[in-house]
Amino acid sequence: MAEKLIRAAEAAFTWRTVDADLEILSLETGLVMSDTAQVRGAEQGSPRRYAFHGERLSVEIEIDEDGIVGQLTPPGPARVTLVTPDGPQAAADADEVGCFTLPAPRPGPMRLDCQRDRDRFLTEWTST
């Protein structure tokens, strides 16, 4: 097997966190597709939608080549950071209705790290 893949798998361990107050938000099973995608079939450039849920926070995002547009539920300010296996890529402040925008992630695994007051939430890793 390619050495590169082994290194990447070994490096995954650096993401181990022992923060007991952390909540992991799970990706909703089955991709949420945009209406246009359902009607017109697969189409380059139509946004991809993902929803992550936890007990105290949910995040819905749409990703296209222009970037990520997202919203937190319950609404309210939070610091949202786009993270890839290489580390944090960009951060944005969600506004009072919980909306935020971030640049488009590179292909490959990504997650969002949401900090609201003292609470921290991480979405599951997912490839986009």
Partner: peptide
């Protein structure tokens, strides 16, 4: 191949958690 590599890495990232 690129997708396979992404999946491979994602599986290990998830196992960490």
């Amino acid at each position: 191949p690129a997708d396979a590599e992404d999946v491979y890495q994602t599986v290990w990232l998830k196992l960490v958690e």
